Amino acid sequence: MKYDFTKFRNSMNSIGIELTNSQLNAFETYYDMLIDRNKVMNLTAITEFDEVMDKHFLDSVYLFRSIELKADYKLIDIGTGAGFPGIPLKIVFPELKITLLDSLNKRVGFLNDVIDELNLNDIEAIHGRAEDIARDKTYRASYDIAVSRAVANLSTLSEYCLPFVKIGGKFVSYKSGDCADEVDNAKAAIHLLGGKINKIDEFSYSNNSRSFIVIDKVMNTSNKYPRKAGLPSKKPL
Rank of each mutant, 00 (worst) to 15 (best):
E159G: 09
G168D: 07
S148T: 14
L154S: 05
F164Y: 13
N153M: 13
V172D: 00
L162I: 13
C179G: 00
R149I: 13
I133H: 02
T138Y: 11
F171I: 10
S173R: 01
L154R: 02
R140G: 03
D178V: 11
N153A: 14
L154A: 07
Y160R: 11
V147E: 01
N153G: 11
R149L: 15
A141F: 05
I167A: 06
G168N: 12
K170C: 05
I133N: 00
S176Y: 15
F171W: 07
A180K: 14
V165L: 04
E182T: 07
E159K: 05
S155I: 00
S173W: 02
C161W: 01
V172I: 12
S142F: 09
D144L: 05
E182S: 15
S148M: 08
L162E: 05
K170I: 05
D136V: 03
S148K: 07
A152T: 09
D136N: 10
A146T: 01
D144Y: 05
D181V: 15
D144N: 12
G177C: 14
I133T: 05
D144C: 07
E159I: 09
A146H: 02
I145T: 03
I167S: 08
I133V: 15
T156L: 08
F171K: 05
K166D: 03
E159V: 10
Y174C: 08
S176N: 13
R135F: 14
K175I: 04
K175T: 04
D181C: 12
E159Q: 12
E182N: 09
V165H: 00
G177A: 13
A150P: 07
C161S: 11
R135T: 14
D178L: 12
K170F: 06
D144K: 06
S155A: 10
D178P: 08
A134L: 08
T138K: 14
Y160G: 11
G169R: 01
K166H: 07
I145N: 01
V172S: 00
A152P: 06
Y139N: 04
G177H: 13
Y143C: 02
N153V: 10
R140W: 04
C161K: 02
L157W: 02
D144M: 07
G177R: 10
A150G: 08
F164T: 03
D181E: 12
F164D: 01
S142E: 14
S142V: 07
I133D: 01
Y143G: 01
A141I: 05
S148F: 06
S148H: 09
G168H: 11
K175S: 03
I145F: 02
A150M: 08
G177S: 13
K137Q: 15
L157A: 04
Y160A: 12
Y174D: 06
A152E: 09
V151E: 09
V151H: 14
S176P: 06
I145A: 00
S148P: 08
S176C: 13
T138N: 14
C179K: 00
K170S: 10
C179D: 00
A134V: 08
T138G: 08
D181S: 15
S148E: 09
I167D: 07
K175A: 04
I145L: 09
I133F: 04
F171M: 15
S176G: 12
N153L: 11
G177N: 12
V172N: 00
V165T: 01
A146D: 00
F171Q: 04
K170R: 14
D181W: 13
Y160I: 13
R149W: 11
